[in-house]
Write a protein that binds this DNA or RNA. Sequence first.
DNA 1: TCGCTTCTGCAAATCATTTGCAATAAGGAT
DNA 2: ATCCTTATTGCAAATGATTTGCAGAAGCGA
Lengths: 171, 171
Amino acid sequence: MGENVNPHAHFASICELHLPDHLMPETANLADLCRKHGRRLTGQRRIIADVVSAAHDHPDVIEIHRRAAAIDPGIALSTVYRTLRMFADIGLIETHTFEGGRARVEQATGEHHDHLIDITTGKVIEFRSDAIERLQTEIARRLGYRLTGHRLELYAEPIPGRASPVRRKAR
Amino acid sequence: MGENVNPHAHFASICELHLPDHLMPETANLADLCRKHGRRLTGQRRIIADVVSAAHDHPDVIEIHRRAAAIDPGIALSTVYRTLRMFADIGLIETHTFEGGRARVEQATGEHHDHLIDITTGKVIEFRSDAIERLQTEIARRLGYRLTGHRLELYAEPIPGRASPVRRKAR
DNA sequence: TCGCTTCTGCAAATCATTTGCAATAAGGAT
DNA sequence: ATCCTTATTGCAAATGATTTGCAGAAGCGA
Ligand SMILES: [Mn+2]
Ligand SMILES: [Mn+2]
Ligand SMILES: [Zn+2]
Ligand SMILES: [Zn+2]
């Protein structure tokens, strides 16, 4: 981890994390990718793309609309929905439906990870455990299946005493 | 499969399964439990309870309504919703929201387990892996949290050649 | 059986998300 | 820079799942 000024620094740095710094901020302009996929780069799409790229807190659709509207008050919620769905369709973003509520979004990084949701604050913490990933594939196999996807969400509360959960920096 | 008449036979028998037969069919009358919780045992509740107890396929609310209506055509969908929510509130059943679609229900057994969803048929297969359970607790701990709950769903397709997935019987 | 509540059926209300449509704006071609 | 075709947008209405208000119906302890 080091002098991690990386916007993805919140990505759980323990738990067998395998995201080399130079690979992490897959900041490949969402807007450009959008164009690259033959879609028109409209003003609202550019804004929504920027909002999503800048977000590192898994905002939900309403929140994204709020942030986008702060830049262009004219943007319609339906446009946000349509744009996000389009981004998801071409694989630029991922959407999650944690317990209850609206779908939450994050820019796709290519690197798979799962989430831990702090039930006291709603904060989402990312992590990756190859051990668990392997285990899931193995379980499916034993059941006679080939794993094609999965959903793993941990709901937890901070351990008191433990100064703000692990977000330890440098070393 | 085989002389396995146990309604829970579909519960993955491999994967470190820890559900001794004599403990499995937690067939403690849902209806009775309902009464025990101070609620009135109405005709429709009795029927819904029976439908849920008899189901071993994680039916969704509409399906439960369909089965209940087959017994008493007068049962309203809203009653099914209200009753299921009530059952869930007092811990008699568990509801899951697998990818897309309505909530699916199952009678609570006290024994925790996770699910593998056959993406080709929608069939739900139950399993339990203590290794994964442990790993989840450990990951949360390392992140500074105490695990209070989790959601683990495996989406997979049958491995061709492998005669109908593992549902192998006795020994 | 009586009476007090708790329930139920029905319709309307919510909530999140999608969609029809006319007006508007990309962006490749003049 | 101007056209022109066609994708995209804003708005309102539509969906789909689940909840809720309400008046009448039904539990159940006395
Ligand atoms: Mn994430
Ligand atoms: Mn189950
Ligand atoms: Zn994972
Ligand atoms: Zn589990």
